[in-house]
Structure formats: structure tokens, C-alpha cells
Design a protein around this nucleic acid. Sequence first.
DNA 1: CACTCATTTCACACAAGTGTGAAAGTTCGT
DNA 2: ACGAACTTTCACACTTGTGTGAAATGAGTG
Lengths: 161, 161
Amino acid sequence: MESHMRDEAALRAFVEDMARLLGDWGFPRMAGRVVFTLMAADERSLTAGELADRLGVSAAAISGAVRYLSQISMVAREHVPGDRRDRYRLVDDSWYEVTVAKMTLLKTLADAADVGAAAAGGPGTTAGARLAGMRDFYTWVQDRLPALLDQWAAEKAAKAD
Amino acid sequence: MESHMRDEAALRAFVEDMARLLGDWGFPRMAGRVVFTLMAADERSLTAGELADRLGVSAAAISGAVRYLSQISMVAREHVPGDRRDRYRLVDDSWYEVTVAKMTLLKTLADAADVGAAAAGGPGTTAGARLAGMRDFYTWVQDRLPALLDQWAAEKAAKAD
DNA sequence: CACTCATTTCACACAAGTGTGAAAGTTCGT
DNA sequence: ACGAACTTTCACACTTGTGTGAAATGAGTG
């Protein structure tokens, strides 16, 4: 049946697309490739060698990428005793986690805007009022995001029944 | 009164911080500096020369930045007749607009995930199900963002009464 | 302990982005 | 039309990120 056929060429293109997309957003390209190779894998985990093979890149590139991804808790390293190879596994819902993590940017923006508003002379000045407005917007959005994400989790759980 | 004093040094630091922050997210640094110099200005608009002076950068750098910012509709160029200098003004709520614009990324991500899910063999496969989950998440968030932003606009309008 | 396979580190090449100075192009006032 | 003020374009230097091959390190096996 067609719907159960893996289109390897299309998947490679997909991985590359996503890596480029994340790359535009400041995410290291190779790390993006690794994440989406794992996403696109039917196996639960892959070795560094498998990742290198599927991506056609050097072992060194994989090494750097998985180190980065481990640090930010996006992949887990599984050391199987009795095997020289480490296995790498995606942390559950890692793209969800990434999204959440990226949202800390909102707090950073809000904080910076607050500092700027004060430096501009407070809300009594044109610039101060403008920067305070920016701060309020990002603060407001940030405050409401957790509830939004909870709602997603709840709907997903309901669907799974 | 202290609260009406501009702290120029702190504002320059603020501008640089924000530019670096946006830079990490794929936004051109100099364009970021220009945006936040305008945000931090009490004047409604600034000339290229004023921007260059305040930032301590070359006129060429300003030229490139405002061209970029005009293209993405973040600053408006105001050509005052009888004056050789162009004036640059922030489009209202431009940081809000930027945020909204960036959210188109969610659709791009969802679309790419959909393609990936199909290439992986559909929801019957491990990878296909995983990618479909990613697609569903981004689609869901994207669907709910407009309402969230409308709510902000409504609350802001209510406060302004 | 020596052997072998897997991973990491390192120096390098290559590509992309960033900002500058100088020259060229525009626009207004006279 | 000329000159002055302002802006844009261009070639260059500098920095940063990216991935490679080769050497070094680490881990299991006989």
C-alpha cells in the first residue's frame, strides 16, 4: 500500500528544509538535521554512525550536533552497556519543548523594553511610553501562553481516550 | 524630576542589546539598531544623518538598513518636499506587526511537517505519526493566535478609555 | 595487554554576513 | 546650469558559522 511506503528522497529533502528553516531562526543547521532525521526515523533511536550515513556528513559533524542537542535537552544519549556505540533518542515532544523554550525570548524582550522605558525617562515621555507599550505587549502574551499550551495538552489527552 | 531624564548611555546599551537579541533570531543587526533607535527617540521621525550620528555608524550602513526595513514595512520613508533629507518613521506598532509576521513561520512549519508525514508513510508508521503530531501542534497554535492577538487589541482599547 | 571500533578534538578551508570608506548619483537652492 | 547637501552603490576587510579530514582519545573484546 502506498500510504505505508517511505519516500527516502522526500524525507531527505524534508530534513534539509527544516534544518534550513530553523537555521534562519538561529538554530544550528547540523543540529536541525539531526533532530529531523530522528523525527523521520521509524527507529526509536539511532547511533551516531547511522545519523552520519543517512545525512551523508562526517562523524565530526554529528559529534558536535549531538553535544549541542544534549546540552539543551533535545536528545537523550543512551549508553548501552556492552556496545561501543551510543544511541541517540529524541526527548519526547522535543519540538514542543523547543517552542516553549523559545518563548523565554518574550520575557527577555519584555525585560529589555522595561529597562529601555526607564532609560527613556518613563511613561511621561514619548519614547518611554512607546517602550512601555512594547513591554506590556510581550508581558501580556507571555502571561497567556502557558494556559494556551496547557489547553493543547488537555485537548490532546482528551483525543487519546 | 528624575523620571523625565533621558539616560543616553543606557539607551545606547538598550539599542545594542535589542539589536543583538534580534540578530540571534535572524534579524539583520543594523536594521535592529535602527528600529530601536527610532523606538527610543522622542522625535516622531529621524533623518538618516541623525540615525548615523546616534549610532556612530556610517551613512552606508543606515542606507542598507532602511532599505531593508522599508521593504518589510517596518519603517516608512517620508520625503519632505523642499528638504534634501528623507525622514524615517516607525510604522505604528511595528514590533507587534513583526511578531505577527514571524508567526507565519508556524504555518511553514506545519506545512513542512505535513509533507514529511506523508513521505514517512502516513500515520500508520512511527515516523509518520510523530510528524503528524508536530503538524497538528503547530496548526493548532496557529489557529488560536489570531484570537489571542485580538484579545490584546481589545484590552488595550478598553484601557485607553 | 593489544586490537579494534566508535567518538571526540583540532586545525583548516570555505561560505555568509557585517560595516566601512570612497566614488557616484540625486535633489534642492541659487 | 552650478554647487552643496544628502543618499546610494561598490569593492574591500573582518568576523562568524559550518563542515571536513586526520589525529587523538576512550571502551569493549580476545
